[in-house]
Design a protein around this nucleic acid. Structure first.
Lengths: 161, 161
DNA sequence: AGCATTTCGGACCGAGGGTCCGAAAATCGG
DNA sequence: CCGATTTTCGGACCCTCGGTCCGAAATGCT
């Protein structure tokens, strides 16, 4: 934080007044980069928008989030070493909500299992730690994206109870 | 660490000489509680041992790990706020290896996808953060165990590529 | 200009993990 | 049994880092 303040040509107090805490600063940076995804989901344009069929939206959504993480992994990694757990973030809540709704939509109500659980699991599968581990083990970003898509297919085909 | 040393009636230096670091101490404690699982897997007695069919071993293994985490969540949570990522732990390696082999065994070689990936995903699904979130959202430990088992079934039925 | 109010910034603080060196204890030699 | 030497112990100390605080500078108001 000292270094950031100095680099910004500003005092540390100003930095903390503006962002509140280290975690909040990181979240702000991260959220700024994430807005395109949010907007795409809130719009209507396929494959992320509301005019695409739910199944495709799920796959597209997870792929978008994964791609976002691949492109910003240092930032996300830094945020992860945090006091407040990542799952209590506004962004995580939003992602989990979005995904849960999409999954619920994709299933006919009767056969639907616990869509909320499925959403959590699919997000866990693109946890930054895991993504970095997969990269470290030699998998390419494209391989990871394919595996993730296949997993999503499998999970939404048979949503766990 | 100060408090632990004091409580143990010993100096902080002694504590660090014995364990090396905070993380190592937590790992040692954690590993001690984990040994029963390790031994059960390395033995022959079903449902965890080598005499049970692979599919059942997978389910039993994940359930054992999940149960372990449910019983030791404070310890594991403490370890998680760590410098060294959890996925680089000896224990994680062992779990992932074990699971990968079991999954590979359970599939006929031809239809097998990326067993290593599937193993990672199934372990991610019982990440302590997620488990605690599920508890916080009102799910009971038993519900979580059932969901997890159902997920494992779904994933090993159709291992992602 | 003179005063009030807001904003700024860097010195300072407290927590916590990790180190270090003098002291105590165990081991050895005669 | 008593020094001498080596090993082990313990807590004072150090350093980093997130976060706070207050005097000073800037801004606004009359």
């Amino acid at each position: 934080m000292d270094a950031i303040a100095t680099a910004a040509g500003v005092g540390k107090g100003t930095l903390f007044r503006a962002f509140g805490s280290r975690d909040a600063l990181l979240d702000a940076l991260s959220d700024a980069k994430f807005t395109p995804v949010r907007q795409a989901v809130e719009g209507r344009r396929p494959p992320l928008g509301s005019e695409a069929p739910p199944r495709e939206r799920i796959i597209a959504f997870l792929d978008a989030v994964l791609t976002f993480k691949l492109h910003n992994r240092h930032l996300i990694r830094a945020r992860e070493v945090a006091s407040t757990g990542t799952l209590r973030t506004e962004r995580y809540r939003w992602m989990q909500d979005t995904l849960r709704n999409l999954i619920a939509d994709a299933m006919s109500g009767a056969t639907a299992g616990d869509a909320g659980y499925a959403a959590h699991v699919l997000l866990a599968a693109i946890h930054i730690d895991l993504v970095e581990e997969l990269l470290a083990s030699g998998r390419t970003p494209e391989q990871i994206r394919r595996s993730q898509a296949a997993l999503a297919q499998a999970v939404i085909t048979d949503v766990p109870r």
